[in-house]
Design a protein around this nucleic acid. Sequence first.
DNA 1: ATCCTGGTGC
DNA 2: GCACCAGGAT
Length: 369
Amino acid sequence: MTPHQRKISATVSHLLEWYPKNARDLPWRRSRDPYAIWVSEIMLQQTQVNTVMPYWERWMQALPDIAALAKADSQTLHKLWEGLGYYSRVRNLHRAAGEIVQLHSGRFPERFEEILELPGIGPYTAGAIASIAFNQARPILDGNVIRVLARVWGLGGDPRSAVVRDQLWQTARELVEAASKPAAKDQTASRRRHCADLNQALMELGALICTPRQPQCEVCPLRADCKALLTQSVDALPALPKRPKTTRRYFQAYIVERRGKFLVRQRGEGAVNALLWEFPNVETGSAKADPREHSSRLLGSVSTVEPIATFQHSITRYRIQVQVYRVAGVHPRLAEGRWVSRGELSALPCSSAHRRIARLAAEPVPCRT
DNA sequence: ATCCTGGTGC
DNA sequence: GCACCAGGAT
């Protein structure tokens, strides 16, 4: 046995020992249903556990199986996803459910290659489903696992470079394959879900102990195996490249209310936040752009334009300032969009920013003094 | 306030 | 190699 193989095997033992005692009791971990695990993995892409939990519960309640998802309409799905962001994920879930019904008789495929074919499922998610739902020896590599492996093996260099990325995948593969083979010293009945547990342990360790900042190396199950700890380079690993600087952008949004109804419009298929509903808005060049000029250009004609609020939000690398105005005197014939009641508005799927504007719209018009 | 985080698809 | 979103940590 080479030193490398010994390290792989020690890491597997330590992780499998640690995981059952330290894993969080997350709702999707109580399920073996590949559908439930798939939904959780898609939600967990780019989104944190605490955010996902209520969404997953609601989703599973509303759409308990693949057939229910396949039959659901786009508006229901977007409403269930509202606020999670990256809305292409929900469209891909729907398309994939359709493919599973058509191509796999409604049963979630078990072969890795077939899982990987489904829309919205890449190498990470396919590995996660194969290992967690079906206990197959498939590696996973997400941000958490990259951090753990880069530190334990002391891998410098950009983890996104081909060389380091291949090293990381190879290590992840060796770990899960080692977990899949019964160890000489431990052949009790407890050896069963070891591929599932090993992969989840890697992620859980990254989430709870081997964190980006202030990792808890003192209590880490891999502290005896960790190269970075030995060489005091934990804080320097993984060596991620700096993110590009954020760009400031400025938007104005208009609350147009007439006879208790609000003017809203639906975003196009190819746009950011595709198919979501929004208040009329324009991107301007600066925070000082004239709201009267921009709103009348967008809405035909306006009488009064009153500032309501300003807030910030972020999409990808953009830092966006939204100035919200209440606009009166809009000709319903000139303004494009749909007029909806307060109740209808709350039923339409919106991005977080426009849901926020909807809350402002619901507030009573402030009295002028 | 200012920093940081994250898989897939094109 | 970039676009996609909404947060959390400090």
